[in-house]
Design a protein around this nucleic acid. Structure first.
Length: 487
RNA sequence: GGUCCCAUCGUCUAAUGGUUAGGACAGCGCUCUUUCAAGGCGUAAAUACGGGUUCGAUUCCCGUUGGGACCA
């Protein structure tokens, strides 16, 4: 397919909840599509549901879209600021008798619906009010009767082309006369979308698969209004591990949650882009190694092709996200990482900036998420407590361990402070002793004495950060602990 | 229930009529090693099923099964 003009695309989230991973994905694909083709990306806030829309959610959506690096060129445009436009087209449809007022009560409609479902028929409006004259309508309105506006659904087999799935067709007679607006100032979703997409000159509608059945309704509306029809692409859904639409009951679905647990935006961006899409191995100018899935923002933009997106839903696999995140933490700019960690490390840990920096440099290699830093790095900054038993290496015993630590302390005391400058330097000084007594016999208790945990970076890395004084103090303490244990 | 959509390793996917069905994550093994990670090397693992079309189907068509979405 060739695209002649730069496309105009949009995302249209409802501010009824924080930015959801699915909305972010739709936004991301629209963004990639627009950037690739030098098009325009519009952000539209669909806030016509006054009951559920909240400004804090709109702010959250905007904040986290930006955080992810999904930027738009126009907007945000709010539907509540466009009520005049909807009213204009509503009046036009009413005037042309393509829409009509319906006075049927919800109770009666519900009874009719139940009856049709009982017969195994697709429930649809019977058209009771479709024959009302304008005089009837005027009278009912004068009496104060409540009404909605329905669209006269034409009966046709409507076919449209989907950029991802190919041709899709629906029998519109199954829809019945749908409600398009509660009143002249309260348009419903399918109607408002049609007006907005037309007026904003949206050329490609890229949205979730949950909207496929709305598409024929919208196309019929476009035709009634004399609007052109954009091209459609319905993205497969992101699935939970139980293969159902991602739900907040089982997983974190808000982007803000991912930020809070320490995922980097570029990791999420990279990961989400690969959920349901993958660059072609050939035919692209981007250098895509066959052995990596780490792609920069620009690589993703250049390689993006909407027609290559998968048709089937994709399960959200957090393990892969973790792996990507670990990678991005490793290659993150140091100053930026230090700043990012401010949300995860107590202020007191920064009392000695050089020490904090050294700890970060060491721990960044083993973190999958930023929030792990809080736990992994704690022993560098706070008093440690541990089960005395873990000081003893599996192949050693209590007395030997105590003896090794005593000798180690005197060795360390004899060293110049400069020996603690780098792990390599310290290692050169201590290793001969460790070799003589058995590496594990010395290194294991040394490391545990310094860290208080069974799993940690190496003893020399820790000791050089702690410094000579603190190192000796912790080992001395460990010896005391062992002595108390034997009594 | 009706309508629509979908189906390659556990997961994300590559291969659009001809490949020993490739990669990534996770797993497992080895290596490194004082521990845990990381790294390096290696390994296991898939075309849902049944019919066609074709010299040849992961690939095209039909059906079955399974899954999902939407409408309620």
């Amino acid at each position: 397919m060739t695209i002649q003009h730069p496309p105009r695309v949009r995302i249209a989230p409802s501010p009824t909840g924080p930015l959801h991973i699915g909305t972010a994905r739709t936004g991301l694909f629209n963004f990639l599509f627009a950037k690739k083709l030098a098009g325009t990306f519009v952000l539209r806030i669909e806030d016509t549901d006054l009951e559920r829309s909240e400004i804090r959610f709109e702010n959250d959506i905007i904040e986290y879209l930006r955080w992810l690096g999904i930027t738009w060129d126009e907007g945000p445009v709010r539907q509540t600021e466009r009520l005049d436009h909807y009213e204009h087209y509503l009046r036009k449809l009413l005037h042309e008798d393509k829409a009509y007022y319906c006075f049927c009560s919800p109770e009666k409609l519900e009874i009719a619906r139940q009856e049709m479902v009982g017969r195994g028929v697709a429930p649809k409006y019977a058209g009771t009010c479709s024959t009302l004259t304008s005089a009837d309508v005027a009278l009912r309105h004068k009496e104060g009767a409540r009404s909605v506006i329905r669209f006269r659904m034409p009966s046709t087999i409507l076919q449209f082309h989907d950029m991802i799935r190919g041709d899709v067709s629906f029998d519109t007679s199954l829809f019945g006369d749908i409600v398009i607006s509660k009143d002249l100032r309260t348009p419903l979703y399918n109607f408002a979308v049609v007006v907005d997409d037309y007026e904003m000159q949206i050329s490609h509608v890229i949205r979730g698969e949950d909207h496929v059945s709305n598409t024929p309704k919208q196309i019929v509306l476009q035709r009634a209004l004399g609007f052109s029809t954009p091209l459609y692409a319905h993205l497969p859904l992101i699935l939970d591990t139980n293969r159902a639409k991602l739900s907040k009951r089982f997983n974190a679905v808000s982007i803000s949650d991912y930020k809070k647990t320490g995922y980097l935006p570029e990791a999420l961006f990279n990961f989400i882009a690969l959920l349901g899409w993958h660059p072609s191995e050939v035919g692209t100018t981007v250098n895509i190694s066959r052995h990596t899935e780490i792609f920069s923002r620009n690589e993703l933009i250049h390689a993006f092709d909407i027609e290559r997106v998968q048709k089937a839903g994709a399960i959200f696999d957090i393990e892969k996200l973790d792996w990507l995140n670990a990678h991005y933490i490793k290659v993150c700019d140091e100053e930026r990482l230090l700043a990012l960690l401010s949300d995860f490390a107590p202020q007191a840990w920064r009392a000695d900036p050089a020490k904090f920096r050294a700890v970060v440099a060491l721990m960044r290699e083993r973190m999958k998420r930023l929030d792990e830093f809080t736990e992994y790095a704690r022993f560098f900054f706070e008093p440690i407590a541990y089960e005395p038993g873990i000081l003893i290496w599996k192949k050693s015993d209590h007395d030997a361990t105590k003896e090794h630590l005593r000798l180690l302390v005197s060795l360390l005391e004899s060293l110049e402070t400069t020996s603690f400058a780098t792990p390599a330097l310290l290692e050169a000084r201590v290793m001969p002793f460790a070799e003589a007594r058995g590496r594990g016999d010395v290194l294991w208790p040394m490391r545990v004495a310094l860290s208080g945990v069974e799993k940690s970076p190496g003893p020399f890395e820790i000791a050089t950060i702690l410094g000579k004084e603190e190192t000796i103090q912790r080992i001395t303490h460990a010896i005391k602990v062992l002595e108390n244990l034997s009594h």
